[in-house]
Design a protein around this nucleic acid. Structure first.
Lengths: 202, 202
DNA sequence: AAAAAGTTTAACTTTGTGGTTAAGATGAAA
DNA sequence: TTTCATCTTAACCACAAAGTTAAACTTTTT
């Protein structure tokens, strides 16, 4: 019961913080939507600040390890790319606003956010394990030699950018939520294929 | 003198609105940083809302037409892609926070922002003129046949995403502002090359 | 049943912020 | 000099939002 309510508050708060930012979010709104009152909000989480930190901690604690794991699979570079792209698109489809939110908070250099981010530094070695594989296969002549950093950024850009530009994409191509998800589903194969062709040796 | 001060206020306000959002921005802060007082702020722009709208109008009024023009060049698909990528990277390098800001405001569906955005609908036909060229050259057998929408999103993703993920990229690859700009400078050629290879016919 | 701990509510206080006002200073132009 | 827009200062108002309190209700423990 207690945990239920606590989680209900956290879920409601997350929705608001992620879609409207910290200063755009009203404690009263969270209370209303969670079907409780403001006093209870403060009973559970002393202040707006602490509630925010808890939301961030929970959200990043779930999201970042998933992202890191997808970077750390085994197999050939193309196999790992396929797992990476598939996992990213599947995971982010469940939380499409998350990348934009994370990047916004990082750009604004929100103190509590950056601190929480640093707790998940496991993300960094995961990236380099992936890049290492690129380098290895380039040296082995399996794929065309290009700048690994630029390639890494390209893979992430093709995969993550559409979620961040979702409103524009939906508007330009006349898509609703469902059609957008379908497009992203098809995009998994598209990206892998696109990268394979781009890295084919002449 | 008057126009100077007016523009000084607008520039200061833009900095704050873009980096901290509407509700995160304080009129007092804008006044302080512009070296004036709050009363003068309201003397020039009646309200925070009107100031915001003016900032948005000025910013989008300059930025979007540039983006649309870059999509509307002439030449072959690869030539147009090169112009598009070069112009986007050069333009956004001067305002690296803009894409993230625009997407955030659109996602939050900010009334005034969306309204202003619709004034620059010229952007939409520009996109389709570019896509049309893809289709033409695919039919003519000049480039490999793939989904034009997915290709369009890929080009924009590879070009724009790095700016939106700038703090992460700088952190992961240990880059400062200058090094980031250098990387983006090199990226212009990288993207064009990458796309050319990906679209080469088997 | 009584006590204790946990849970909920309404009403209240405090603070932050947008916005106003009034009185006057400054500087350019008629 | 007079006039007018521009600009400053400082105090003020109104309101919204964060946060507090005290009292009451519910559940658990003894």
């Amino acid at each position: 019961m207690k945990e239920d309510k606590e989680q209900l508050i956290l879920d409601t708060a997350r929705k608001h913080f992620i879609s409207k930012g910290f200063s755009g979010t009203r404690m009263q709104e969270i209370a209303n939507e969670a079907g409780i009152n403001k006093a209870l909000l403060h009973y559970y989480f002393r202040s707006k600040d602490k509630l925010y930190k808890e939301v961030i901690s929970q959200t990043l604690g779930k999201f970042i390890p998933e992202m890191a794991a997808a970077l750390s699979s085994s197999g050939t570079f193309f196999e790992r790319t396929e797992i990476l792209v598939n996992t990213y698109i599947e995971t982010i489809t469940k939380n499409p606003e998350l990348p934009l939110f994370i990047m916004s908070e990082l750009t604004q250099n929100k103190a509590g956010f950056v601190a929480e981010m640093q707790k998940h530094a496991s993300f960094f070695p995961a990236i380099f394990s992936f890049i290492q594989q690129m380098v290895t296969e380039m040296k082995a002549g399996k794929i065309r030699k290009i700048d690994p950093m630029q390639l890494m950024i390209s893979i992430l850009g093709m995969t993550i950018f559409p979620f961040m530009a979702k409103p524009v994409i939906c508007k330009v191509f006349g898509k609703n939520e469902v059609q957008f998800d379908e497009m992203m589903f098809e995009r998994k194969a598209f990206i892998v294929d696109f990268i394979k062709n781009a890295l084919k040796k002449n």
